[in-house]
Every structure is written in C-alpha cells, then in structure tokens.
Write a protein that binds this DNA or RNA. Structure first.
Length: 242
DNA sequence: AAAGATCTCAACCGCGCGTAA
DNA sequence: CTTACGCGCGGTTGAGATCTT
C-alpha cells in the first residue's frame, strides 16, 4: 500500500519561507519536486516554485504600480494579449502574477471605460484601428501595429518578447541564469554572488518578519553574529538550518 | 457599530511544451 | 516513436481586507 505524503496547502508561514530561502541560498534550484522534501517542507514542488517566483526571490517589487508601469502594461496587453510572462519580462521587478492581478482588478476596467468614452467620441476612426487589432492574423500587419503602438521602435515581435537582462534569477528557467558575464550559470555560488552584490541584502524590509540573518549564513552580517550557529553544508541534509 | 458588498492578491489547478530515457 | 517527468503559463478561486450602507 502506498501512503500518500501529506502536502500542506494555503498560505505560507514565515517559517516555511525561511526554510525555502535557506535551502535555495545553500543549494540553488535543482529540482522543484525534490527540493521541498530536503528543505523540510511539506509542500509540493509546484507550490514552492510559485512561492519563490512570486514572492521570495530577489529583486521583486510589490504594490504601487507607477503610472509608467500602468501605461506599459496597457500597451503591451493590447499587443500581446494575456501573455503575462512576456509582459512581465518588460517590467523589471514585477512578476507575471502581480501584473495579471493588477490588470484583472484595475486596469481592465479602466481600459474598458476609456474605450467606451473614446468610441463614443470618435466612432469612425477607432473602429478602423480596433478592427485592425482584433481581426489581424497577418504577421506583417500586426508587426506594423506593434511599431505604431509602441513608442520605441521594435523591429520584430521576437525583439518585443526578448526578456531584458536585469534579474539575478531567471524568471522562467529552472536554473539560475546569469545577467551578465560576471557570473556563471546555475550554481549556488552564483546565488551567493547575487546576494553579496546587494540584490538580496536589500530585501529584508520587503518581507516583514523574516529572520534574514538566519537565512543568509554566508553574509558578513551573519558571519560576525551567528558563526556558532552555522550548520556545515554536509549536515544540512540531516539537520535543516531552520 | 454591524452587516453586507466589493476588492485584492496569494495560491491553486489544469494544460501544454520541452526534454530525457 | 512513445512515455514519463519537470516546468512554466494563464485562468480561476477564496480568504482576508476594505468600503458602503
């Protein structure tokens, strides 16, 4: 008889967050399905991945979308449709989930009401343009439209979808991806490099209540204060950090 | 002050794609 | 070629927060 391991669902606790961060700091991301077990979490790989990608990973900005960000989302949504990951790639520090939520709860309504107003005002001209958006299946004409709608010139749709290199972590890949030539791919050393180059050490104020010194055992800060509590790498498997 | 309505957003689910065996 | 697995994406849900009456 196979006994199904209990998997927790719902809101993540601080303790769980710390466990996940501590694990990824040490070992990097290697297999989302296996990692939670080793990190001492009763969570699915899927849930862990989501938590990391949308909340815990470095360089995430939350709340308070700027006017510029709003306009960018509206423009890109018009061109790309609900391809949130592609839109997120154009908005540094925003997650696709955040953008999707923001669109669904606020921007969509705004766009709809603005469209109503504008169609009432200029029926004939807008009809021509919107029919281009909705009916165009032709690549050339949609690309032409893309160039018209975007302020900056875009030569191909691939250019538009190409994610900018800004993040320490790949927003989509299972492995870590270098942002510039300085770092190598996919190692936890790389991860630590990111942390030590400020990206993560600036984060504590963003996730209230997390014990950042505990999850960053290699930082200078924690070295000076917590040397005695440091768990050697080999022991982590039998003695999780948190 | 209380109750109901509405909003927000973290998290879940199902599906499809890519890859390795 | 087929199958299994891992991952990422987009749609949806529901609990908690906030607003309105």
């Amino acid at each position: 008889m196979v006994r199904q391991t209990y998997l927790k669902k719902g809101t993540w606790s601080r303790d769980e967050d710390q466990k996940l961060i501590a694990y990824i700091v040490r070992y990097g991301i290697w297999n989302w399905n296996e990692m939670p077990k080793h990190a001492g979490l009763q969570r699915s790989g899927k849930s862990s991945r989501l938590r990391w990608m949308n909340y815990l990973r470095p360089n995430i900005r939350r709340g308070n979308f700027t006017r510029e960000e709003e306009e960018t989302i509206i423009r890109l949504q018009k061109i790309l449709g609900n391809r949130w990951s592609a839109i997120a790639a154009r908005l540094p520090q925003r997650t696709d989930n955040d953008i999707k939520n923001y669109w669904n709860t606020r921007l969509k309504k705004r766009v709809i009401s603005e469209n109503k107003n504008s169609t009432a005002a200029t029926t004939s001209t807008t009809e021509t343009n919107s029919s281009m958006v909705e009916n165009s299946s032709d690549t050339d004409s949609s690309l032409m439209l893309t160039n018209i709608l975007l302020d900056s010139p875009v030569s191909t749709i691939d250019d538009l979808l190409e994610p900018p290199a800004y993040s320490c972590f790949s927003p989509s890949g299972s492995n870590l991806v270098a942002v510039d030539d300085k770092y190598s791919m996919g190692t936890d050393n790389y991860l630590v490099s990111c942390w030590e180059t400020q990206s993560y050490l600036e984060q504590p104020q963003m996730i209230e209540g997390l014990d950042w010194e505990a999850v960053l055992p290699n930082s200078e800060l924690s070295h000076s204060h917590h040397q005695q509590n440091y768990v050697p790498l080999d022991d982590f498997w039998v003695n999780p950090l948190i």
